[in-house]
């Protein structure tokens, strides 16, 4: 943000969100032993990483990035991830659950097990393996109704369980990061950002994002009401299915066979924001994960340790 314009008035809402997120990150670095930033390559991760660079400037953020990989992300995501790793001087740890690798777990044959083994178990294993005691995640409270009451610091037991009864009240901006040995914290510095805030900030700060967020013709099939992109030849076509070119973009990015696209002509960031402002569909609708078990499934996933 233009430094000099801040002089003449109070902070704008984006400046205030930025200052708060920076404050949170610095608290975590000061009060925990071995923090890590979960880097999922999506737009929220991009913003989080950008804020981290601001928080610790001129130092490099004093923690590594962790990508809990599923091997089923979009090709474009891997490309941006590797470019970010090369350009930033931060260490990038890519972790793949060896059991999932060995069993060849995939979203087509294994359903919910896919998310469970790659992401939920993968994250726990990675935290254990490297001994991280705090992990930054990019979740926001506006993503869905049930996230509205999430705390910014979320405590997990030594078994990575989320114990709903022992979460702590958060007053002012005094965060209590104390914990017993073996316990871990998930920290959500973007809690108070909305999807629109994220897009505006990406635009204003010119933050690199995966091109999949911008519309262009891509090979797709329509399945169970979702438009899926055929990102590589691992995508098993059902009988009678042939990929169709559609101009699509993504509101949110996960594993490509699980992430629904929206049809759109918005080929630039400005056009995406424009579409946002005429408000069409809230972003979680594009994620198959929430539909697995109807409402309440997010809650269950969280108790199991899914981010």
């Amino acid at each position: 943000m233009n430094a000099e314009t801040k002089l003449r008035r109070g902070l704008t809402h984006l400046e205030q969100l930025e200052a708060e997120s920076i404050h949170i990150m610095r608290e975590v670095v000061a009060e925990t032993e071995r923090p890590v930033m979960l880097y999922s390559v999506g737009k929220d991760s991009a913003v989080m990483l950008h804020l981290a660079r601001k928080a610790f400037y001129p130092a490099t953020p004093p923690f590594p990035l962790l990508h809990v990989d599923t091997t089923w992300k979009f090709k474009d995501m891997y490309a941006l991830r590797d470019r970010t790793a090369a350009e930033s001087v931060m260490e990038l740890i890519v972790y793949r659950n060896p059991e999932a690798v060995e069993r060849g777990i995939n979203p087509f044959d294994h359903g919910p097990l896919h998310t469970d083994l790659w992401k939920t178990e993968g994250l726990k294993q990675a935290l254990d393996k490297y001994g991280f005691d705090a992990a930054f995640g990019g979740a926001r409270r506006d993503e869905e109704k049930s996230r509205a009451k999430e705390r910014i610091f979320s405590f997990r037991t030594t078994q990575h369980r989320w114990d709903p009864k022992s979460q702590r009240p958060e007053l002012w901006d005094l965060y209590n990061a104390r914990k017993a040995r073996g316990e871990t914290i998930r920290v959500f510095p973007l809690s108070n950002w909305t999807e629109l805030d994220i897009w505006q900030y990406i635009y204003a700060e010119d933050i690199p994002i995966v091109p999949l967020y911008l519309a262009t013709p891509r090979p797709t099939v329509e399945r169970d009401g979702l438009i899926l992109m055929v990102d590589d030849d691992r995508f098993p076509l059902r009988e009678g299915e042939t990929p169709v070119e559609r101009s699509i973009r993504f509101r949110t990015l996960g594993c490509y066979p699980l992430t629904g696209a929206v049809e759109s002509e918005a080929a630039t960031l400005a056009e995406v924001i424009q579409e946002m402002l005429v408000a069409t569909t809230s972003e979680r609708q594009g994620r198959a994960i929430d539909r697995d078990a109807g409402s309440g499934s997010m809650e269950r996933k969280k108790q199991e340790g899914y981010f």
Partner: peptide, 23 residues
């Protein structure tokens, strides 16, 4: 607004207005 340029202009205007938006 349909064209990319117009969208850019509209978003620029919107963001400019947002410079004054408070929390």
């Amino acid at each position: 607004v349909t064209s990319a340029d117009a969208a850019r202009q509209a978003v620029e205007n919107y963001l400019a207005a947002n410079q004054r938006k408070s929390l």
